[in-house]
Amino acid sequence: MSATYGPNGAGKSTTTKIMCGILNPTSGECIINGKVPYKQRKDYVKDIGVVFGQRSQLWWDVPPDDSFYLLRDIYKIPKSNFEETREMLIEKLNIGEIVNVPTRQLSLGQRMRCEIAASLIHMPKILFLDEPTIGLDAVSKITVRKFIKELNEQYGTTVLLTTHDMQDIEALTNRIILIGKGKLLYDGALTDVRKKYSSKSNETSSIDEVIAKMYTDMKIE
């Protein structure tokens, strides 16, 4: 599990989209699991799940469950596997009561939990999360984080997270990748960053302060 972060406009989402096979890079190469996402798109995307926090993959006018069944056919998931995964996701994400309500009537937090379920219904090897907790309340955020952590530990799903929410990163992973202006600036442990950039007078600076300091230091503000 790793997290990518950087200031607005750094290229996080673009990088994610290249890794999802949506965009072609202007230069350079990207190989994941031995495949080039944007060249073998149809073959490659079978093994990935994606959540774009600012968009929706659920059908607006029908309940999330209908979207799940459509995804079953899209990914050609065998019936027994599908039922099993579906029940697991419904239970873990606590969406049993809302999967039969039309998506348009769900709150953002309810919808986001269904979005995550939709991205995992085919049990992908890699899960891309692009700002999955944007606009969520504390309870939903905690549910989502807890679930992602469990998924990573129990099923060994690789999770690539993009976020501005440092608490997401702290709760989920220790490996962080910092990019700014399209360049890789740092790849390493979050604890190291913390040690280096905590203000000397105050050892317990909040993670946001630490990161802000790091940005200033690296002149990417």
Binding site: K17, I22, V45, I48, V50, F52, R55, S56, I74
Partner: peptide, 14 residues
């Protein structure tokens, strides 16, 4: 127009 097309491109479909 909004970029929602992203989600259509991550499916194994044409």
């Amino acid at each position: 127009v909004t970029g929602q097309v992203s989600y259509e491109l991550v499916r194994p479909l044409s």
